[in-house]
Design a binder for these strands. Sequence first.
DNA 1: CTCTTGTTTCAGTTTAGACCGAAACTACGC
DNA 2: GCGTAGTTTCGGTCTAAACTGAAACAAGAG
Lengths: 172, 172
Amino acid sequence: MSAAVEKYVLHWGEMGTRWGTNRTVSQIQAILYLSPHPLRADEIVDLLSVARSNVSTSIRELQSYGLVQMTHTLGDRRDYFESPHDVWELFRVIIEQRKQRELNPTLAMLKDCAAEVDAEDETDPITKERIKNMLAFFESTNDWYEQISKIPTGTLTKLMALGAKITKLIKP
Amino acid sequence: MSAAVEKYVLHWGEMGTRWGTNRTVSQIQAILYLSPHPLRADEIVDLLSVARSNVSTSIRELQSYGLVQMTHTLGDRRDYFESPHDVWELFRVIIEQRKQRELNPTLAMLKDCAAEVDAEDETDPITKERIKNMLAFFESTNDWYEQISKIPTGTLTKLMALGAKITKLIKP
DNA sequence: CTCTTGTTTCAGTTTAGACCGAAACTACGC
DNA sequence: GCGTAGTTTCGGTCTAAACTGAAACAAGAG
């Protein structure tokens, strides 16, 4: 592993903990993304110096996200793993994961709370209002995401390139 | 504290740990957001059952983000605290924090790595390409954010309401 | 049957961070 | 000077989670 690759992998591992997964999972994703060829689990063990069992379960987790595919070559029954190399695909998966971890549970909680304060007289009306405002915000964010996530990558990159110019289309 | 408020505060605290702060900080933000009137630090101590020192440092952190303002009343020199009640303002602050914690360091790392592999012959060309692709993605995301963050709330809500319809303006 | 490849489980260790509570400090008002 | 209000610091404790390493297991190849 070159110094640059090592730096990348270590950083990615650190960031992973802020993105909802653990260090090993994101380090494996990093090394698979960077590797010029698919890797075997035991190669990952050597490269990252982690336990075999850890690699096994981490790969399983990545597979469940669609961030790792298994490949084989003729005459070799060992499993090789690789990551998608399209950054947009990676990005979509990460966003989707975070939505499920962060947005969905909060949305559910807010719906609960809103229903609860409606049927009750204990909570201050101002507080009730605040809860409902927050719920409305999360609902519209959720709706927005549902729509945006269906837009093909090519269109999205164009939209992003437009940036703030997009407001000129809407303002008048 | 009513049952609904307690549920909200506890959940917000849990989520906070996924949003880059600790539980106490986000619980305080939650209770200040929901409270019909500004609260004193010692009231927060009672409501959340946390140490006074913890409240003090947490409020300081929230103030540094702009998520807490101090207020006073005549003839009372005690400090009262309140949170902005505009959900969009809260949202902007949270996003900005996350950008600083997640995007900026990664962008810096990627720039480092890209420069490093340029000056070196050890790393596989494919790997070099992957690093540069990732850098390009983070740079465009960063540029996009810089522009979007300057758009006033009213325009942003209109944009969000448009949702996927926005693509019809760009496609042809 | 045996070797290789791989998974799964689980008790035990390690680590990072949050949190507590005491103590020492500033600053203001009466 | 004394009480009130608040901050800051810091050693100590607690906890959740990641990770290890060993063991038991499955399943195909020769």
